[in-house]
C-alpha cells in the first residue's frame, strides 16, 4: 500500500483537518470532529444533513455550503457514522424549521441515521438514495445501493431548501429526484482501505469490474477490458433499461471519477456517453464531469443520468457555493 499518509489510525482526522483548514472560508468543523457545517449557518430554512462512511471525498463534506448541505457527518472509512455524531449535526443545523436527512441506502447508514432521528427533539425526515442499477432491486432484498446520484439529490434539494421549500415538500422532491436518477459504475483497479493494507479486490491487467460499488463491492460481472465506447454502452443500457425515460427527455449526464482516474479520461467517457444518449433519443441538457463520489484511489468511473423537468433544471442551475461544487 503506497499512500500519502502518516499513521493509519489518524488518516481520517488528518485529512479532515486539512479539508477544514483549506476551506475555512466556507465550512467549519465541529471541535470534536463529529461533523462539518457551514461557516455561516443558514437562518430560518429547513436544514439538510447528510453523511456516511468516509473514503468518498468530496462527498459529503465537500458539499456543505450555501445552496447545498447544512452539515455533513463523516464516519470511519467505509463505515457509517454513529448516531451521536449525526444527532450533534442535526442539532447544530436545525434552525427550528426541521431537518431532512439525505441517506444512502446501506443498512448501516439507514440504522444509524434512524437512531439519531429518534433521539432528536425537532422535526426530522429522511430522503433515501438508491440509484445504483448494478444491484438487483427485488423486493425481498435490501434493494439498491446509493452511489453518485446522491450528489444530484443533495444539489437539487439544497437549492430548494435555500429557496424556502417546506419540509414535506423537500421530502417529496427528494423522492422524485431519486426516482428520476440512475447510476452504474466500472472499476479498472481496486481501492485499498488503509486499515486493511491490501487491495479490497484483485483485477487482472486486462480485467474490469462492471457494476462495482463505491466501496469496491463486486458488481454485475468481472469482464475483459474493452473500449470506452463499449463500457459506456453497457452502463447506459443498464441505466436506461431501468430508468425508461420518455423519448426526447432532457437529462443531466454526470460522469463521476472514482479517485484514480484523471479528468481527461472522464471527459472522453462523457463524450462517448453524450453521443450514445443522443442516439437513444435523449438530450443532454446539463452535465457534470469530475471525481465527486469516490472510492479512495480506485480507478474507474460511474455514469449517472437524471431525467430533468423544468423545476429540476432550474434548481440544478441555482447558485451553489461549497468546497467541491460552485457556480
Amino acid at each position: 500500500m503506497k499512500k500519502l499518509i502518516n499513521d493509519i489510525a489518524n488518516v481520517l482526522d488528518e485529512s479532515l483537518d486539512g479539508f477544514a483548514a483549506a476551506h475555512a472560508d466556507l465550512v467549519a468543523m465541529d471541535p470534536g470532529r463529529r461533523f462539518v457545517q457551514r461557516r455561516t449557518p443558514a437562518q430560518a430554512k429547513v436544514a439538510l444533513v447528510s453523511g456516511g462512511g468516509s473514503g468518498h471525498e468530496p462527498l459529503h463534506a465537500g458539499f456543505v455550503g450555501r445552496g447545498m448541505l447544512d452539515a455533513a457527518v463523516p464516519g470511519a472509512i467505509f463505515t457509517s457514522p454513529t448516531p451521536d455524531r449525526i444527532l450533534a449535526a442535526i442539532e447544530a443545523a436545525d434552525t427550528g424549521a426541521g431537518v431532512v436527512l439525505i441517506v444512502k441506502n446501506y443498512e448501516g447508514d439507514v440504522m444509524n441515521f434512524e437512531m439519531a432521528a429518534e433521539m432528536a427533539e425537532g422535526e426530522v425526515a429522511r430522503v433515501l438514495v438508491d440509484d445504483d442499477v448494478a444491484v438487483d432491486n427485488s423486493s425481498y432484498t435490501i434493494g439498491r445501493r446509493g452511489v453518485a446520484g446522491t450528489l444530484v439529490v443533495e444539489k437539487i434539494l439544497g437549492a430548494a431548501a435555500e429557496k424556502g421549500m417546506a419540509l414535506p415538500d423537500l421530502v417529496a422532491l427528494g423522492a422524485r429526484v431519486n426516482a428520476a436518477t440512475r447510476s452504474m459504475g466500472v472499476a479498472l483497479s481496486s481501492c485499498t482501505v488503509p486499515a486493511a493494507g491490501i487491495p479490497t479486490f484483485q483485477l487482472g491487467e486486462d480485467e474490469i469490474e462492471v457494476g462495482v460499488g463505491i466501496h469496491g463491492e463486486p458488481g454485475r460481472r468481472r469482464a475483459p477490458m474493452v473500449s470506452a465506447d463499449a463500457i459506456v454502452a453497457e452502463l447506459l443500457k443498464a441505466i436506461l433499461d431501468d430508468l425508461k425515460p420518455k423519448a426526447g427527455s432532457k437529462c443531466l449526464l454526470f460522469v463521476n471519477g472514482f479517485g484514480g482516474t484523471p479528468s481527461s479520461e472522464l471527459y472522453l467517457v462523457f463524450n462517448a456517453a453524450r453521443k450514445r444518449l443522443e442516439v437513444e433519443g435523449l438530450s443532454v441538457a446539463r452535465s457534470l464531469v469530475g471525481s465527486y463520489v469516490t472510492s479512495l484511489e480506485m480507478a474507474g468511473c460511474s455514469l449517472t443520468v437524471t431525467v430533468l423537468d423544468d423545476e429540476l433544471t432550474a434548481l440544478w442551475d441555482e447558485p451553489v457555493s461549497t468546497p467541491a461544487l460552485r457556480w
Binding site: 462512511g53 446501506y106 440504522m111 444509524n112
Partner: peptide, 13 residues
C-alpha cells in the same frame, strides 16, 4: 452504538 458505527453498531447497541 456511539462508538461502532456501520450496521453492527446499532444492532448490538
Amino acid at each position: 452504538v456511539m462508538s461502532m458505527g456501520g450496521a453492527s453498531g446499532p444492532l448490538y447497541g
